[in-house]
Amino acid sequence: MKIAGTAKLPFTPERAYALMQDPLILAKAIPGCDALDKTGDDEYRLKMKMVLASLSGSFEGKVRLTAPDPPNSFRMLVEGSGKIGFMKGEGLIKITAAPDAGVDITYEGDAQIGGTMAAVGNRMIDMTARMLIKRFFEKLASEPA
């Protein structure tokens, strides 16, 4: 599944970039994130609990931040698996100074969903993914400039 979209953040490109590299900030912004522990230079162990409508499940996996090009772009990989299935998303996040103020974020990548979740939730996956991404950027935007 292709995932692409845009978001706005009220920061300078440098600040926006730095926020998205900070595990403490990411841990707050990733919806349902319980823990994000550093396991390598660019890799973190992720524990999250997804609660969405009646669906709920715990996931364990990792977050990797690669191809750093501060403050313009980086790649982000999130993967997790749990009893209800597994997911894996990987994409490029670009930061450009917006003409008015703040930055425009564009993201583009691929996501895979598997397990029971994938087989029974087809009609919800796309909108759920988009809502989770939206929540992520909303949370980021609430950080101090």
Partner: peptide
């Protein structure tokens, strides 16, 4: 099936 082998029409909802 998707490219990863998931049967995406795996129940009567789809």
């Amino acid at each position: 099936y998707d490219d990863n082998g998931q049967l995406v029409t795996g129940e009567f909802m789809d």
